[in-house]
Write a protein that binds this DNA or RNA. Structure first.
Lengths: 226, 226
DNA sequence: GAGGGCCATGAGGAAATCGTGAGGATCGGC
DNA sequence: GCCGATCCTCACGATTTCCTCATGGCCCTC
């Protein structure tokens, strides 16, 4: 489980890092709003812990920026207890709001509550098709003919996940590029083609004439289960 | 949007009912834990607002009971600020925890944040007519006679979508050309005829005498569902 | 019944898009 | 620093998609 912590106070940043690391999270940190957005696009965290009071690009702006392309849970930390701030942050797209000072136990419990929501969606996610069985939660692919494990890289997983979470639906190139390579991807689908090929090589019975990872020229790709 | 409010204090129950009703929620109430579980099973609310301090069957028990069969978002209200209570409730399956006294605005914002996650359940836009069923969201066409997938190209989709979003209405050529080929299209409807033909070939039972993609000479085309 | 719009049809070439192979850049572990 | 895994760049056929062109039918007008 990966957490992105964004705070302009180095001391708080450090304290939170230690807290989350001690609870077995992978921690990514950002010292300002711009860095938070870049880190999020780069690392695809499972949860974002965000200080509302950052200079320049503020917390609300970061929420808007993230929500432009991501549905990652966002927990806001703030020193301000005003109702207006809370409402503004929550309506901008934040999922929870904690005021300083807060207790570590409560923060961790709220993070658990937020990340738990994602799991049930993915628990059902996964499917068997062709010669393979894919488990998106466990991140494993098994070939059903001989039981061999098939290894996918990080980028391959992100791409496959985006496609498999929309079974039967056409997923536009733009969406795929944004989900896998972040919002400021290069507008060239060169590497998208490359990774589709990789997936077909590893998952399709006959990569030359795919039956489950289909191309729709000029539009995008489609995952067909079964 | 339907909310279940569970509290043993009739006064709070009434106040919350008024609050949520004023915000256009359908309100279901329960005065104790047992009633809360029964009402939830009966009414399938979109969100549950739960007081932790109910006698007999307490709030934690209700959370456990609900989580046995439902993933409905649960927001807990409590007079106790102890960290241990919050952690216990959140880890039992609650999604948010608010301590009394609280502001109405904040409560409503938190409820919005919790229910927002559920919305992206895609609604199917499309229609069935003739021998085919068209899903504009998934970008798929299935022939109902034999279940075969019918493939449309990008331009064909854009044209069909423009027509289907105006069911029964005449769509002028000028509108179609602008929607499909952009504002500075060539003012010749040569390719418009071509793609109408393509769509008829793929969607109409008898492309020679179309029943759903109709020509109105000199004016435009009309999509007739059914 | 001749002529002119307007539309349907068929075939074929231009252009965009895609699949493929080879190879260099980058990153993290040792 | 080395090495392997991973990620990305580039160039070239192959395929799909898009559009042009030419022909013929229908209907209305004159």
């Amino acid at each position: 489980m990966k957490v992105l912590i964004a705070d302009d106070d180095p001391q708080i940043l450090r304290a939170l890092s230690i807290t989350f690391t001690a609870s077995d999270y992978d921690v990514v940190t950002a010292g300002d709003g711009g860095a938070a957005l870049r880190r999020a696009a780069e690392h695809h965290p499972d949860i974002v812990v965000l200080d509302l009071g950052m200079p320049h690009l503020g917390g609300i702006d970061v929420i808007h920026g993230l929500r432009g392309w991501s549905t990652v849970p966002i927990l806001v930390i703030s020193g301000r207890m005003d109702s207006i701030d809370k409402v503004q942050a929550l309506d901008a797209g934040a999922d929870d709001y904690v005021t300083k000072p807060f207790l570590t136990d409560e923060l961790l419990a709220r993070v658990r509550a937020l990340t738990r929501r994602r799991l049930p969606v993915r628990e059902e996610a996964g499917a068997a098709f062709g010669d393979v069985r894919v488990d998106l939660v466990a991140r494993s692919v098994v070939r059903t003919t001989d039981g061999a494990d098939i290894h996918l890289t990080r980028t391959e997983w992100r791409l496959l996940e985006t496609l498999m979470l929309n079974p039967g639906r056409l997923v536009p190139q733009e969406i795929l590029l944004t989900e896998v390579w972040g919002p400021q991807h290069v507008n060239d689908s060169g590497y998208l083609r490359l990774y589709i090929r990789q997936l077909r090589k590893k998952l399709e019975r006959d990569p030359g004439s795919p039956r489950h990872l289909l191309t729709e020229a000029g539009m995008g790709y489609r995952f067909v289960p079964g």
